[in-house]
């Protein structure tokens, strides 16, 4: 009874995902496409929950559905009349993109089968469980992300930093919003502390349950996005030096820890198991600050006045 009934839910989810994906691609206007995409993120989060992967469900809910939705809606506001007209790509472009995507799918399928076939060796999950006590945390996902495969996470933070620098070079940020009406302002005033609190909670809980720097950073960035949307002047970005320090803090602290372990034990990012818990929290703390900064600055769509010292003080 239980499995059978939940199977119906899975079936509905699968159909909805396909309908939403096709709908978002073929929507008549960009606005409809964005709304369908937001709902698509919601259904994907539910699908991950059904697949018993709460870590990915959390990331999808925080970044895929929530923050990406706000980001796309902001991008929508930038469009000029006529942008909605659908331009058809040349045939060679469609063929090239289709070919690349097909190649990627084949590669992923091959990698998946290879890992499945490699079960003669020990499954990775067992190895993680067996060595979990050395990682300093009790959540296997955090252990993998910040200890066993910390190098990958360091590179992810670097990619995020590179993306941020790309957006910062595009030009000045989107114009600030006017102050919100009383109803919206009241709601925003309630939500900002809640988001900050939830972000801190996710950062802390990441050590033993799903959570962590990316989700916490997304919630903090959402708090900043709300302050921007509400035209709250009392929330200001820090000055250019501190803003840049915030943006690179995650990468910098992570690299510093890596170099110290290289000097101490001779292996890059080999966290000593006595200190691992504290070091992971340290890395995650700074990574959260950098991720939140990066996501919010990307939301602004260009560099804020405080990014460039010369623009703040034209005479200096």
């Amino acid at each position: 009874m239980k499995a059978g009934a939940l199977l119906y839910l899975d079936l509905i989810m699968v159909i909805l995902m396909l309908v939403l994906a096709i709908g978002a691609l073929h929507a008549r206007s960009l606005r409809h496409a964005v709304i369908l995409f937001i709902v698509f993120g919601l259904v994907v989060a539910l699908a991950w929950a059904r697949l018993r992967a709460p870590d990915i469900a959390l990331a999808e809910a925080a970044i895929g559905s929530g923050l990406a939705g706000a980001l796309l809606l902001a991008a929508l506001r930038d469009r000029r009349p006529g942008d909605d007209a659908t331009r058809r790509a040349p045939v060679w472009q469609s063929v090239a993109v289709g070919g690349l995507v097909t190649a990627l799918v084949v590669l992923l399928a091959w990698a998946f089968l290879e890992v499945q076939g490699g079960r003669a060796n020990e499954p990775l999950a067992n190895i993680v469980q067996a060595t979990l006590h050395e990682s300093g945390v009790s959540n296997p996902v955090t252990a993998v992300l910040l200890n066993f495969r910390a190098y990958d996470t360091l590179l992810e933070l670097t990619v995020l930093l590179a993306a941020l620098l790309g957006v910062m070079s595009l030009g000045p940020q989107r114009s600030p919003m006017r102050a919100a009406e009383p109803m919206a302002a009241g709601l925003i005033g309630w939500l900002i502390p809640l988001l900050i609190l939830a972000g801190g909670y996710l950062l802390w809980v990441g050590a033993h349950a799903p959570g962590g720097a990316f989700q916490a950073g997304a919630l903090l960035a959402a708090a900043a996005v709300l302050a921007h949307l509400g035209g709250r002047r009392e929330f200001q970005l820090p000055g250019h030096t501190r803003l840049r320090l915030l943006a690179v803090a995650g990468c910098a602290v992570f690299t510093l820890v890596g170099v110290s372990t290289l000097l101490g034990s001779g292996v890059l990012l080999q966290l000593p198991s006595d200190w691992a818990g504290g070091l992971i929290l340290l890395i995650e703390l700074f990574a959260t600050a950098s991720i939140a900064t990066a996501l919010f600055l990307v939301y602004l769509g260009g560099h804020p006045p405080s990014w460039n010292s010369r623009e703040v003080h034209p005479d200096a």
């Binding site: 559905s65 925003i188 939500l191 919630l219």
Partner: peptide
């Protein structure tokens, strides 16, 4: 926790 995050962020989207 996923439900909590979803509940807070869906308000952000509507704002």
């Amino acid at each position: 926790d996923v439900a909590l995050v979803l509940a807070i962020l869906s308000v952000v989207v509507v704002i």
